[in-house]
Design a protein around this nucleic acid. Sequence first.
DNA 1: CGTTCCCGCCACCCG
DNA 2: CGGGTGGCGGGAACG
Length: 823
Amino acid sequence: KTPLKQAATSRSVLTEIQPECQPLTTPPKPKEILPEDPWTPTSNLKMLISAASPEIRSREQRRELSNNTSVVLQAKHCLQEHLSGHEYEKTQPSRKEKSLGLLCHKFLAWYPDYPSTAENNYICLDEVAEELNVERRRIYDILNVLESLHMVSRLAKNRYAWHGRHNLSKTLQALKKVGEENKYTQQIQMIKKREYEHEFDLDGERNEDMARSFGSNEHLEMSFVELPGMEFRAASVNSRKDKSLRVMSQKFVMLFLVSTPQIVSLEVAAKILIGEDQLEDLDKSKFKTKIRRLYDIANVLSSLELIKKVHVTEERGRKPAFKWTGPEVLPSIQDTKLETTSTTCPPPISEPIPSKEQCSKNLFPSRGKQNFTRHPSLIKLVKSIENDRRKIQSAPTSPVKISASTNQDSAAFPSEVAQLPAITKDKLEEQSKKAKEMKTKLSGSALECGLSFPEIVPKPEPPFTTAAMQQPALTQPLSACPPSHSSVSPVILPQTPSGVSYTIYLHPSQAHTVTTYSPSFMLQPLPGANVTGIKSINPKVLNKITTEEGDNQIATDDVTKTFTTTERPTIKSETVSQQCLKRSHALQESHLIKRCRRDEENLDTSLTFFPSGYLIPLTQCAHGNKAGFLNKEKTGTCSLQHTAYSSPIAGVIPVTASELKAVNIPAPLNIMLSPTSIAASPVLSNSCLSSSNTSSAPNPSSSVLNFTLQHIGLIPAGVQVPANPVLQHMVVPSQPENVSHSSEDLQEGEVSKTALQLPHRWVEGEPSVPKELQEPQAVTENFFRTPGGPNSVSSLSANSDGTDRISQGTLYIPQRKLEVSED
DNA sequence: CGTTCCCGCCACCCG
DNA sequence: CGGGTGGCGGGAACG
């Protein structure tokens, strides 16, 4: 059937990849021009392009280089064989030639990776479809995944805007973050674990808890993750509810960004993606479908050279998987500059704080199905809100009640609606403007417009000392904190920091809100020495191992180098807060100290970031704990914030902001609070609001944490996660991505974080196994299974001998070696 | 035979 | 109601 079509439609000249294959319509030029490399699929395109526009040509040329890789080559080979065989046959396009991946390549060839702002980077679906000589349907697939990476955005029906890779890094960072918040790492581990168990004891139903927790609790559903600049563009068209492919794509990417060997098997990915929306019913067909989709996505991602296909060989045989080959994604942005700026204090952040809403409109519970997006008015709203917020922030206001009703209606904002007409124009302008802004920002140290708003942080506040939980006591220095230390132990909700008691309402059902950008994140403080040392070494190794094709740049290295083992900062004495503030490489003690001091006075978020490592919401500590304090001290601020949210506008946006508040405890967990609850508790509301529109929340006491953990199913009911240092030890040195912190820095505020992280660590931690590492292609994965039952955390704490290395012990039991082979 | 995944039916959604 | 979108899964090409 295809043949006919092909013939019929093949009129679009160069589009066809195999010139010779098409006797009838053989494009005349191809041969001449492609002396050496006649078979590069893109070659035709190039010609086409060059003929069409000189401007594009250059892009093409550049792209040409990259094209010579992967897919293209394969295609080439195939074709060659094909030709040599029965050259003249009407070799129908042969399935491969029609592959989505190739198609995507062709598509990409038309647009520059980094388009200049002023340009008509518009994409017309019809045109493209025609040019590429494929049905529209296929283009949608490509565009959808590209859109998920914000490489394009829909402007209107049949029309997209091309952004190229400009937003890529930001997007990835955002995705990574969301992935972390979603506990993807844990989910992956869980799945693997289950798998593992299945293998040996066919216990189908054994881990109810696991299943349960996974199914119901974790079920953190998130929707499309937006980038700051691109929120509602195309709202009118953007209506589509599901966006499943887009969302799937994002999630898929997140998995890579979050998992340590950056390899994800289709199977696991599929399970996670499924698990998310529906509890796990091992629906066979569904699984199959999911996998099919994943292949589609993977093909596109491969074309983008973000991933590549590999095979993971396990006992069970080899499974298809993909390995991330894209750029390394630094946890927190803002720091491209770190290295350079290290010694000095980063420039104060003067920018108005972008509202979180803007950054992520994502947070809509997918279920809620209130299609806010549909209202074009929203576009306008977003803007106006932004403005309002700025104004409001500085303006005195009286606290207003926050409208709990999420269902705002557009009706409520007539004025906004009225302004709609102007939107389009605005958008355009905005775009270009934005582009400029971006550049500007990049040059500044604060790279990310949206990503790292230091926002609220700037308020002078007492350092994190008060860390939520235990007030003073925490100051303990490094040594291993005795488990007992957990006076704050779990179950009981002793006193809340502020003395105010509050309740946290979890919204299990409701998905969590994904906060794309939480300004208030910081890396874990860790003694620079340890981390650094480790980092500098392992990461490289890992990278090499994993990346054998010698692909690329190992960004990490540079960073790593920056702060080598040289410094053995003895920061012990420093307070947690100080440590937190430090940047790992800015280890020069003197500098550090000074800086820290300064920081204390004025918390500058930027300072709180470490070049790489684990991100932890820091602000929260400060804010949360100080709740009481805040109330008094920061009342002004709080009220302001309040106002902002409660304004009518807020009502709309609220979707994002007020609908669900995410109490972002340690990275992995995301506790959602209903707006109501927030409102109910002064402490929370204040802290939440004040602490940036992000998901930041006050640090609940460890007990709360435990509660949460249990509730969520991260830890068995009986187990308590002590707010003790031991946990910290969980970290495995070999982890390239996450910086491990030594037990030493435990501190008040930190405790809570630590505790929470535990789960994350366990799962994710990877024992450092040099040998393994040395074998190229071999990746080790750890599954932790608990001999005595579901994670016996308790044993862990028992183990706490002060220093780390527990990693290898109890939790990580089996360690399997997986071989990854290239295709 | 298992993997990969193209193709296009057809349900949505919107104007 | 027509046209743009895009789930979805059969089943064919591929290995």
